[in-house]
Every structure is written in structure tokens, then in C-alpha cells.
């Protein structure tokens, strides 16, 4: 555990909590892509199946349970409790276009052709693109609520911090996992355009809206 890894995890946790609180407090999931949230629930489920097979640490177990629990709570709020506020018309990204190729890639490029390892690899690849339905939705509507942009900022920051964590681990522990690193780089790059808008607009007190 190093400072980048810890702050990365906390940033990820902050993103998840911000989104849950936003939906709960406003009693609305307007502007939120339910499809991205389904993908994140799928990511956590397929990655954390090792909760059943191995114990790593108390921290590891608790965080995994929180992430999974929050992911399903978010999906529940969007598709059940506050379904009436869900903007399905603008959330039109086709999930199979992500899940099928990612599943194929996970079967082809992995560390070990075993059930849990392929699911882990699938979750890593899927996480790197899971935000696309949300970004697609924002590009369709042309705007995002400020609180939604805070959510996206912390979600992107988390993977960027993990990149520093991997650099740290490579130098000080000789550890590197090429699958996680490549997927993490892709994931972070997908947020770059958003980071730019966040810094130039949202942090200056303006609402995030895209030029028509």
C-alpha cells in the first residue's frame, strides 16, 4: 500500500458515494447513465468473486463489499426506486458493443486461462470502457449537472492515481501487471477530454455544457 494506491481507492469511494448521495438527496437520477452503472456493477461482481476463495486483508474485503454494495444500490435507485426520473431516451448506448468484444478479448489476452482469472481480466477491460455510456449521454444532451461532473472527476482521478501507484510498485517492488496497466492507461485517457472541461469550466463556477 502506497499513498497513490490509498488516495486512488479513496477517490474511487468518493465518486461512488457522491453519485449515491446525489440520486438520494435529489430523489432523481436525471443525467445519469443507468447503463454505465450496470457495467460497474458487473465489473465489481466479476472482479471480486475472489472474496469467496481468498482472504487478502481486512481493508481489501471491506472495500470490495462497499464497492459492490454501492454499485447495486445505485442500479436499484436508477431502475427501481427513481425509475420515473431515469432518462432512458438519452441513455441509448448499446451495451453489447462493449460487453461482447471485451469478453472476447478477456478470453484471448489473459494471465491464465482459468475461470476466475478470465472473469478478473474481463472486469479490468470492461472497467476501462464502462464510463462510455455516461460520456455518450452527456455528449447527446450537451450538458451535465455540476454534481455529476464531480462524480466523473473523482472516478477518473482514481484510475490516474492508480497509474502512479503502478509506477511506484514497479520501482520499489518490481511488481507490474501489464493487463491492468494497459487497461488503466486506456481508462485514464478516456477521461482526459472531460478533465479539460472540468478544469476550464466547472472549477471556474460554470456549468458543464458542450458547444452545440
Amino acid at each position: 500500500m502506497n499513498i497513490f494506491r490509498l488516495t486512488g481507492d479513496l477517490s474511487h469511494l468518493a465518486a461512488i458515494i457522491i453519485l449515491l448521495l446525489k440520486i438520494w438527496k435529489t430523489r432523481s437520477c436525471a443525467g445519469i447513465s443507468g447503463k454505465s452503472q450496470i457495467l460497474f456493477a458487473l465489473v465489481f461482481t466479476t472482479r471480486y468473486l475472489d472474496l469467496l476463495t481468498s482472504f487478502i486483508s481486512f481493508y481489501n474485503t471491506i472495500m470490495k463489499l462497499i464497492y459492490i454494495g454501492c454499485a447495486y444500490a445505485t442500479v436499484y435507485l436508477i431502475y427501481m426506486k427513481f425509475k420515473a426520473t431515469y432518462d432512458g431516451n438519452h441513455d441509448s448506448f448499446r451495451l453489447e458493443f462493449l460487453v461482447v468484444p471485451v469478453g472476447g478479448l478477456a478470453c484471448l489476452v489473459n494471465h491464465d486461462f482459468s475461470f476466475l482469472e478470465i472473469l478478473w481480466t474481463f472486469s479490468i477491460y470492461l472497467e476501462s470502457v464502462a464510463i462510455l455510456p455516461q460520456l455518450f449521454m452527456i455528449s447527446k444532451t450537451g450538458e451535465a449537472e455540476t454534481i455529476t461532473t464531480h462524480y466523473l472527476f473523482f472516478l477518473g482521478l482514481y484510475r490516474a492515481l492508480y497509474l502512479f501507484n503502478w509506477i511506484w510498485r514497479f520501482y520499489f517492488e518490481g511488481f507490474f501487471d501489464m493487463i491492468a496497466i494497459v487497461a488503466g492507461v486506456v481508462q485514464t485517457i478516456l477521461y482526459c477530454d472531460f478533465f479539460y472541461l472540468y478544469v476550464t469550466k466547472v472549477l471556474k463556477g460554470k456549468k458543464l455544457s458542450l458547444p452545440a
Binding site: 474511487h12 475472489d50 486483508s57 481489501n60 472495500m63 494471465h111 482459468s114 476466475l116 511488481f175 491492468a180
Partner: peptide
């Protein structure tokens, strides 16, 4: 080393 044995990251 086998990365699949060291899944301590989240």
C-alpha cells in the same frame, strides 16, 4: 511471478 496470485488491488 504470476500476477493472478496477487490480487491485492481493488
Amino acid at each position: 511471478d504470476n500476477p493472478s496470485q496477487e490480487k491485492d488491488e481493488l
